[in-house]
């Protein structure tokens, strides 16, 4: 964990420095002494301080040592599917996009194909019904409009 602490601490310190620098360049507001710069700068300096302390390993004694699972490419599936939803929902419509999402996520989680397919067929119409009909959220119709829309 020590190496990653050094990395995360440095990243935070760099982010803090960038925030403070970016904040300091914000234009002052006419007629006000305290402008938009003050708060980001305070936070930025705070982050730099925390980042340095973390990188130096201070406060490590409080942590419970845990060994995280090894990374696989599959962890990127959920955020990837959310991006897919944003890009595809308007064209494909909610039902098709949602079905694709549920199917892909189910398979990536190791579901048997039959279960994943069943979920992909059942879940999207139910969610659509609840959100579109009950909560009046304007979900896009796209290629396959729901029969109740």
């Amino acid at each position: 964990m020590q190496i990653s602490n050094r990395l995360s601490g440095s990243v935070l310190a760099a982010l803090g420095a960038a925030a403070a620098w970016g904040g300091s360049r914000l234009p002052p507001v006419p007629g006000q002494d305290v402008g938009p710069a003050a708060f980001p700068m305070v936070i930025g300096f705070g982050l730099v301080a925390c980042g340095v302390l973390i990188a130096l390993g201070i406060g490590r004694s409080f942590e419970v040592e845990e060994t995280p699972e090894p990374l696989t490419w599959r962890v990127l599936v959920p955020p990837g599917l959310l991006v897919f939803y944003v890009l595809a929902a308007n064209e494909l419509g909610f039902l098709l996009t949602a079905a694709a999402m549920v199917l892909a996520a189910g398979l990536a989680l190791g579901a048997r194909p039959r279960l994943a397919l069943a979920m992909a067929v059942i879940a999207p119409p139910l969610v659509h019904l609840a959100f579109y009909k009950l909560l009046r959220v304007p979900l896009p119709a796209g290629l396959l409009p729901a029969p109740w829309a």
Binding site: P78, Y85, G106, L109, V137
Partner: peptide, 25 residues
């Protein structure tokens, strides 16, 4: 089974966030 629950949660996350301002962002 987890592989049936988690995909639906992901879908709910997407729709729930969309519903806040009907904004895909």
């Amino acid at each position: 089974p987890r592989s049936a629950v988690m995909p639906v949660i992901l879908l709910l996350c997407a729709v729930g966030a969309f519903a806040i301002g009907n904004n895909p962002f």
